[in-house]
Protein backbone atom coordinates (compact mmCIF):
# COMPACT_ATOMS: atom_id res chain seq x y z
CA UNK A 1 0.00 0.00 0.00
CA UNK A 2 1.35 3.26 -0.96
CA UNK A 3 1.87 5.85 1.79
CA UNK A 4 2.62 8.46 -0.80
CA UNK A 5 -0.69 8.24 -2.63
CA UNK A 6 -2.68 7.93 0.57
CA UNK A 7 -1.21 11.23 1.73
CA UNK A 8 -1.84 12.83 -1.65
CA UNK A 9 -5.47 11.62 -1.60
CA UNK A 10 -5.99 13.08 1.88
CA UNK A 11 -4.44 16.37 0.89
CA UNK A 12 -6.63 16.40 -2.17
CA UNK A 13 -9.60 16.82 0.16
CA UNK A 14 -8.12 19.83 1.99
CA UNK A 15 -4.75 21.14 3.21
CA UNK A 16 -3.69 19.61 6.53
CA UNK A 17 -1.03 19.63 9.21
CA UNK A 18 1.33 16.70 9.19
CA UNK A 19 -0.07 15.74 12.58
CA UNK A 20 -3.62 15.83 11.29
CA UNK A 21 -2.60 13.68 8.34
CA UNK A 22 -1.28 11.06 10.70
CA UNK A 23 -4.59 10.88 12.58
CA UNK A 24 -6.67 10.73 9.43
CA UNK A 25 -4.40 8.05 8.17
CA UNK A 26 -5.45 5.57 10.84
CA UNK A 27 -9.09 6.55 11.33
CA UNK A 28 -10.30 6.91 7.79
CA UNK A 29 -10.90 3.23 7.41
CA UNK A 30 -11.73 0.47 9.81
CA UNK A 31 -8.40 -1.05 9.05
CA UNK A 32 -5.17 -0.96 10.94
CA UNK A 33 -2.37 0.87 9.20
CA UNK A 34 1.09 -0.27 9.65
CA UNK A 35 2.75 3.10 9.35
CA UNK A 36 4.98 5.14 11.67
CA UNK A 37 4.83 8.94 12.10
CA UNK A 38 8.40 9.25 10.90
CA UNK A 39 7.49 7.53 7.70
CA UNK A 40 4.79 10.11 7.05
CA UNK A 41 7.16 12.98 7.70
CA UNK A 42 9.88 11.60 5.44
CA UNK A 43 7.38 10.89 2.69
CA UNK A 44 6.03 14.44 2.91
CA UNK A 45 9.50 15.83 2.74
CA UNK A 46 10.31 13.76 -0.33
CA UNK A 47 7.10 14.86 -2.04
CA UNK A 48 7.88 18.49 -1.26
CA UNK A 49 11.20 18.01 -2.97
CA UNK A 50 9.46 16.40 -5.94
CA UNK A 51 7.05 19.33 -6.18
CA UNK A 52 4.01 17.19 -5.48
CA UNK A 53 3.07 19.06 -2.27
CA UNK A 54 3.73 22.44 -0.81
CA UNK A 55 3.31 23.94 2.65
CA UNK A 56 2.97 27.26 4.40
CA UNK A 57 3.50 28.09 7.99
CA UNK A 58 0.32 28.82 9.83
CA UNK A 59 0.79 31.97 11.91
CA UNK A 60 -2.01 31.59 14.38
CA UNK A 61 -1.37 28.03 15.32
CA UNK A 62 0.61 27.20 18.41
CA UNK A 63 1.21 23.56 17.50
CA UNK A 64 4.83 22.44 17.49
CA UNK A 65 4.78 21.84 13.74
CA UNK A 66 3.06 24.69 12.05
CA UNK A 67 3.42 23.45 8.48
CA UNK A 68 0.08 23.13 6.65
CA UNK A 69 0.55 20.91 3.58
CA UNK A 70 -1.42 21.23 0.38
CA UNK A 71 -1.33 19.38 -2.93
CA UNK A 72 0.18 21.00 -6.02
CA UNK A 73 -1.12 20.65 -9.60
CA UNK A 74 1.71 18.29 -10.29
CA UNK A 75 0.74 16.23 -7.26
CA UNK A 76 -2.87 16.20 -8.40
CA UNK A 77 -1.85 14.88 -11.82
CA UNK A 78 0.25 12.20 -10.23
CA UNK A 79 -2.64 11.17 -7.95
CA UNK A 80 -5.05 11.02 -10.85
CA UNK A 81 -2.72 8.81 -12.81
CA UNK A 82 -2.48 6.50 -9.81
CA UNK A 83 -6.26 6.23 -9.56
CA UNK A 84 -6.49 5.43 -13.18
CA UNK A 85 -3.91 2.67 -13.17
CA UNK A 86 -5.48 -0.78 -12.50
CA UNK A 87 -3.92 -2.94 -9.83
CA UNK A 88 -2.74 -6.32 -11.03
CA UNK A 89 -3.14 -9.16 -8.63
CA UNK A 90 -0.24 -11.39 -7.92
CA UNK A 91 -0.57 -15.05 -8.82
CA UNK A 92 1.59 -16.73 -6.33
CA UNK A 93 2.50 -20.05 -7.79
CA UNK A 94 5.16 -20.21 -5.19
CA UNK A 95 2.23 -20.48 -2.75
CA UNK A 96 3.18 -23.04 -0.13
CA UNK A 97 -0.04 -24.98 -0.37
CA UNK A 98 0.33 -25.36 -4.09
CA UNK A 99 3.74 -26.81 -3.62
CA UNK A 100 2.46 -29.09 -0.87
CA UNK A 101 -0.22 -30.41 -3.13
CA UNK A 102 1.98 -30.96 -6.15
CA UNK A 103 4.58 -32.69 -4.04
CA UNK A 104 2.03 -34.94 -2.40
CA UNK A 105 0.73 -35.95 -5.82
CA UNK A 106 4.21 -36.90 -6.84
CA UNK A 107 4.34 -39.13 -3.75
CA UNK A 108 4.83 -38.51 -0.10
CA UNK A 109 3.91 -39.66 3.35
CA UNK A 110 0.46 -37.97 3.22
CA UNK A 111 -1.85 -38.61 0.24
CA UNK A 112 -3.07 -35.54 -1.70
CA UNK A 113 -6.72 -36.17 -0.66
CA UNK A 114 -5.78 -35.54 2.93
CA UNK A 115 -3.72 -32.54 2.02
CA UNK A 116 -6.70 -31.09 0.18
CA UNK A 117 -9.07 -32.01 2.96
CA UNK A 118 -6.98 -30.37 5.66
CA UNK A 119 -6.69 -27.24 3.57
CA UNK A 120 -10.38 -27.23 2.89
CA UNK A 121 -11.21 -27.50 6.54
CA UNK A 122 -9.06 -24.51 7.30
CA UNK A 123 -10.54 -22.53 4.43
CA UNK A 124 -14.06 -23.34 5.56
CA UNK A 125 -13.23 -22.35 9.10
CA UNK A 126 -11.94 -19.05 7.77
CA UNK A 127 -14.93 -18.60 5.55
CA UNK A 128 -17.18 -19.41 8.49
CA UNK A 129 -15.42 -16.80 10.57
CA UNK A 130 -15.59 -14.15 7.90
CA UNK A 131 -19.22 -14.97 7.24
CA UNK A 132 -20.01 -14.57 10.88
CA UNK A 133 -18.14 -11.30 10.99
CA UNK A 134 -20.04 -10.15 8.02
CA UNK A 135 -23.31 -11.10 9.65
CA UNK A 136 -22.46 -9.02 12.67
CA UNK A 137 -21.43 -6.01 10.63
CA UNK A 138 -23.82 -3.28 9.74
CA UNK A 139 -23.31 -2.59 6.07
CA UNK A 140 -24.65 0.93 6.33
CA UNK A 141 -22.26 2.06 9.02
CA UNK A 142 -19.15 0.09 8.23
CA UNK A 143 -19.16 -0.16 4.50
CA UNK A 144 -15.40 -0.15 3.96
CA UNK A 145 -15.07 -3.00 6.41
CA UNK A 146 -17.90 -4.90 4.72
CA UNK A 147 -16.22 -4.46 1.39
CA UNK A 148 -13.07 -5.93 2.77
CA UNK A 149 -14.92 -8.86 4.31
CA UNK A 150 -16.75 -9.49 1.07
CA UNK A 151 -13.50 -9.52 -0.76
CA UNK A 152 -12.15 -12.04 1.69
CA UNK A 153 -15.27 -14.16 1.36
CA UNK A 154 -14.98 -14.28 -2.34
CA UNK A 155 -11.34 -15.11 -2.33
CA UNK A 156 -11.96 -17.88 0.12
CA UNK A 157 -14.81 -19.09 -2.00
CA UNK A 158 -12.55 -19.10 -5.01
CA UNK A 159 -9.92 -21.04 -3.14
CA UNK A 160 -12.50 -23.58 -2.03
CA UNK A 161 -13.74 -24.01 -5.56
CA UNK A 162 -10.22 -24.46 -6.70
CA UNK A 163 -9.77 -27.21 -4.09
CA UNK A 164 -12.99 -28.79 -5.24
CA UNK A 165 -11.67 -28.73 -8.75
CA UNK A 166 -8.35 -30.20 -7.68
CA UNK A 167 -10.24 -32.98 -5.95
CA UNK A 168 -12.17 -33.67 -9.09
CA UNK A 169 -8.92 -33.80 -11.05
CA UNK A 170 -7.08 -35.93 -8.55
CA UNK A 171 -7.70 -39.25 -10.27
CA UNK A 172 -6.15 -37.86 -13.44
CA UNK A 173 -3.37 -36.04 -11.62
CA UNK A 174 -2.24 -39.21 -9.94
CA UNK A 175 -0.97 -40.49 -13.26
CA UNK A 176 1.02 -37.35 -13.74
CA UNK A 177 4.70 -37.83 -14.15
CA UNK A 178 6.71 -34.63 -14.43
CA UNK A 179 8.86 -34.32 -17.54
CA UNK A 180 12.48 -35.16 -16.99
CA UNK A 181 14.10 -31.91 -15.96
CA UNK A 182 16.67 -30.68 -18.45
CA UNK A 183 20.07 -31.22 -16.82
CA UNK A 184 21.03 -27.55 -16.50
CA UNK A 185 17.86 -26.21 -14.98
CA UNK A 186 17.89 -25.82 -11.22
CA UNK A 187 15.87 -24.31 -8.48
CA UNK A 188 12.29 -23.13 -8.13
CA UNK A 189 9.90 -22.45 -10.92
CA UNK A 190 9.89 -18.88 -12.10
CA UNK A 191 7.40 -16.39 -10.85
CA UNK A 192 4.63 -15.66 -13.24
CA UNK A 193 3.27 -12.28 -12.53
CA UNK A 194 2.75 -10.85 -15.92
CA UNK A 195 -0.78 -9.84 -16.96
CA UNK A 196 -0.53 -12.00 -20.06
CA UNK A 197 -0.69 -15.07 -17.84
CA UNK A 198 -3.93 -13.96 -16.21
CA UNK A 199 -6.04 -16.31 -18.27
CA UNK A 200 -4.07 -19.21 -16.96
CA UNK A 201 -6.71 -19.59 -14.26
CA UNK A 202 -6.34 -23.29 -13.71
CA UNK A 203 -2.96 -22.65 -12.24
CA UNK A 204 -4.12 -19.74 -10.10
CA UNK A 205 -2.88 -20.04 -6.56
CA UNK A 206 -4.69 -19.36 -3.35
CA UNK A 207 -4.04 -15.98 -1.94
CA UNK A 208 -3.58 -15.76 1.73
CA UNK A 209 -5.85 -13.19 3.27
Amino acid sequence: MSVKFTLLALLHQRPMHGYELGKQFSSIMEADWDVKPGQIASTLARMKDGGLVDYEIAESSDAPDRKVYSITDEGRADLELWYRTPEVRDYRLSDTFYIKLVLSILGGPVPPEQVLSAQRRELYQQLHNVTEMLRKTDARKQLPWVLLLESATMHLEADLRWIEMCEAHLPDLKHYTPPKPPPRQRGRPRRHATPERESDGALGGSSEA
Binding site: M1, V3, A31, D32, Y124, Q125, V130, L148
Partner: peptide, 24 residues
Protein backbone atom coordinates in the same frame (compact mmCIF):
# COMPACT_ATOMS: atom_id res chain seq x y z
CA UNK B 1 -15.88 -30.14 9.24
CA UNK B 2 -16.96 -28.86 12.61
CA UNK B 3 -16.74 -25.12 12.47
CA UNK B 4 -15.68 -23.37 15.63
CA UNK B 5 -17.57 -20.41 16.94
CA UNK B 6 -16.63 -16.85 16.14
CA UNK B 7 -14.64 -16.21 19.30
CA UNK B 8 -11.68 -15.43 17.06
CA UNK B 9 -13.39 -12.43 15.58
CA UNK B 10 -10.74 -10.02 16.73
CA UNK B 11 -8.12 -12.20 15.20
CA UNK B 12 -9.79 -12.02 11.79
CA UNK B 13 -10.17 -8.36 12.09
CA UNK B 14 -6.55 -8.00 12.76
CA UNK B 15 -5.57 -10.32 9.99
CA UNK B 16 -7.82 -8.86 7.37
CA UNK B 17 -7.37 -5.31 8.47
CA UNK B 18 -3.59 -5.20 8.34
CA UNK B 19 -3.02 -3.38 5.15
CA UNK B 20 0.43 -3.86 3.81
CA UNK B 21 1.94 -0.50 3.20
CA UNK B 22 4.72 0.31 0.92
CA UNK B 23 6.40 3.43 -0.12
CA UNK B 24 5.61 4.24 -3.57
Amino acid sequence: NRLKGADRAEQIREKLGRVAMSEG
